[in-house]
Each structure stands twice: as C-alpha cells, then as structure tokens.
Design a protein around this nucleic acid. Structure first.
Lengths: 200, 200
DNA sequence: TAGCAGTTGTACTGATCGGTACAGTGAGCC
DNA sequence: GGCTCACTGTACCGATCAGTACAACTGCTA
C-alpha cells in the first residue's frame, strides 16, 4: 500500500537516486515546482522506474520528507545524546555549522515544505510527524537533564522543546530570506538563554 | 516596466479581483501550485485582462506579495503606534486574534512564500523587503520606548525587532503544521519576556 | 537451460501549463 | 455624432505536466 520497496541492490540504488534527486530539487524549487520529468532527468532514471517504486508523485514526496528528516538529524548528531547543558550548546553549534558550509542555501528543507504542503491532507501529517520526531529528541534530552537534577522539576520538557524548535525554525526562515545567519545565531542564543532560566 | 496600473475604476476593480483571487489561492496552494487559469476562473476575469495588467505570472506574484503585507499590517494596527510596553502586549494580542478567527488556516502568507521563492532572484528580494517593512515598524516602536527612557539605552532596537520577528515566524510555522496556536502563544510570550529583560 | 520476478527503455496519452493574437466593446471627450 | 483608448471575450499555440502501455532485459534459481 505504501511506497514500493526495492528488493534487489540494483533496485535500491535506483530508488535512492530518484529520492535523492527529488530531495535536492524540491529543496530549491518546492514540490509543485519540481516535475517528475526533472527528477528523472537529474537522477538518470526512466519513468518506468519511478512508477515502479512510487504509485504517484505524492508518494515520492512522502519519501522525500523522510529523507529530509534523516539528513537533518544526521547533521546534528549531538541531539541523540543530550545529557548536559554543554551538550545543548554543542547541538546549537552543530545546527549553525550545517548552514555555515558554503554552497547550500540557508534553509530547513522541512520548513520550506511546511508552507507549501501545510494544508495538504496527505502530506501535512507527514511533515508534522517529522517535526515531532525531531522535537522528541530535544525533549528526551531535557528530560535527562531534569532527571539528573540539572533542570527545574517544575519545567515542562515538551513545552521547552517546542519553544526551542520555534526558535530554530523562525531563525532559519529569516536567515534564509536574508542570506545571513545572524538571525539564526541570535534566535538560538535567546532560546538557550531561555532554557538556562530553568537551570538547577 | 513595472506592473501596469489600472486607470479607470472599472479596470481597478478587475485588477483587484485578480490580485485578491491570486492571493487567496496562493495562500493555500503556493505559487507554483496556483495556475493563472485557476486565478482567472476564481476572479471571473479573462486572460486578456490578466495579461493587460501584468506582463507575466511573476509580476502577478509581486502584486500578491504587496497585498500580503497590506493584509498583515492591516490586521495588527497596533504596530503603527507602539509607544509603551502595554502597546507591545496589545500588538501580540492582535497577532493572536488574527489566527483565532476560525476559517482561515493558521499561517503567515509571507512565511508560506518564503520557503518556495526563497531563492528566486526576482521574488526573494520582494519577500525580504516585505519582511523588513514589517520589522521596521517594530523597530520604530522599540526606538520610541528607548527615547522615552523605558528601554535600556544599550539595547539595539533593530536586533530586538529581528528577534521578535523570528519568534513570530517560528511560532506561526509550528502552529500552522500543528493546527494549534499554542506554539505561537508561547513564542510570543517568550519574546515579550526577552524584550522586557531590557526594560528600564 | 529454462523460467521467473524484479527491473528497465521508449513511446505515448489527455490534460494543463504560461502566454499570444486579435477582434471586438464600453465610456468619456470634443 | 464620432474619435479614442482603456478594457474585454474567445480562440488558439507549443511546451510541459502526471501518468500509462508494453516490450525487453537482468540476474537468480532450479
């Protein structure tokens, strides 16, 4: 029912190439601005492959959303092992480093999608789920701090994690259109200071 | 060179109808997801009108961006007369009230566009300019507070205004995909508390 | 060696895309 | 009344869109 899985190594390579090309193109041109034909031209695959692995374009977008989440989390590995205030700072540094690398535009792939598919009944829940997964790692880290007695027991880790995410997303959005990381740097600094207000 | 202006009242009505329809459709479906044909069907205008007033679709989008800024600022009139801390609070309340009104999706039209046209060389600067205009009203208000001695003279109104904007945008993005205003409420609360840290 | 499932290439379809051509119609102004 | 010019309706164009049809190939297993 879901996306068709590839069973052989060759098939997996083809499928991955399609998703990779789609992810890269949609990052820049959006979903509606990226045609299936362009994706196939960029990936070197043919149309029969595309429709062998995906029922339609929408299912390809679903795979792209998953890919984005993998890429995002893979670029901020500190988020998986948050256990101290220093770890949180390391995490924000990794977040900034992602976008300090020249070449790629300053933007969150999920954030770019959020505006476009925000009301698509099929895709919006997937974007939502991706954000919640991302946020859950933050929440887990804050809970760890709480368990260690380094965070106010009265604080709500879920709410604090959401607050941090809003700073990340808002900072990235402004940094994106201004081609200037300052907005993200400031947003992360303020978010971190806010969290430290609950330090024990 | 720019968008063709309408000279007669009848022409102005037609032009406005086209921009209004385009603004409403692009708010939901994005730029690439909104065809000229759909805009004309929704506005009741014909293709010759569209291309009489706009050189191409891109120029229509330019007009839509301007329209979005008008709508946004028109819905938060307190931003024009910020002169006290209470005014700032009123402003955030107006911001929330916009999205408490049922019917419309929770989202910032400019934010929705930002992801999609973020790297379009023609449109991105216009989105940037719209955001700067919006932000400049905040900055002016903070400067007023500073002049009145109610804000730390060492504070940077421009930087504080940008910080507030990141909170607004981040909060709206999360609130959008979660269909829940809580993210925006929290973000605005935190932003306001941050600003109050510079109170004199 | 034959069979078979997974995979691939190519050609095609009908719908829709942005944009153009052109013949008009409406109302103000002399 | 007749001229002018902003405005409008309709038909059309080539390109591109998402999706389909179908034959052929590849590599594994028996």
């Amino acid at each position: 029912m879901e996306t068709q899985a590839a069973t052989t190594p060759r098939g997996k390579r083809t499928r991955d190439a399609i998703v990779d090309a789609a992810a890269a193109l949609m990052y820049v041109d959006g979903v509606a601005g990226t045609s299936v034909d362009k994706v196939l031209a960029a990936s070197g695959a043919g149309k029969s492959q595309m429709y062998h692995y995906f029922k339609n374009k929408e299912q390809l977008v679903e795979a792209v959303i998953d890919r984005y989440l993998e890429q995002i989390l893979g670029n901020q590995p500190a988020i998986f092992t948050l256990a101290s205030w220093a770890d949180l700072e390391t995490w924000t540094e990794q977040l900034l480093d992602i976008h300090r690398r020249a070449g790629a535009p300053i933007a969150c792939p999920l954030g770019n999608l959020a505006g476009e598919v925000g009301d698509n009944p099929k895709l919006a829940p997937l974007v939502d789920r991706a954000y919640r997964t991302w946020e859950s790692h933050l929440e887990r880290g804050l809970t760890t701090l709480q368990d260690k007695g380094e965070l106010d027991p009265g604080a709500d880790p879920a709410r604090l994690a959401q607050a941090a995410m809003t700073s990340v997303q808002g900072g990235l959005l402004l940094a994106h259109i201004r081609h200037d990381l300052t907005a993200l740097e400031d947003a992360l600094g303020i978010a971190l200071a806010y969290l430290r207000g609950f330090k024990r």
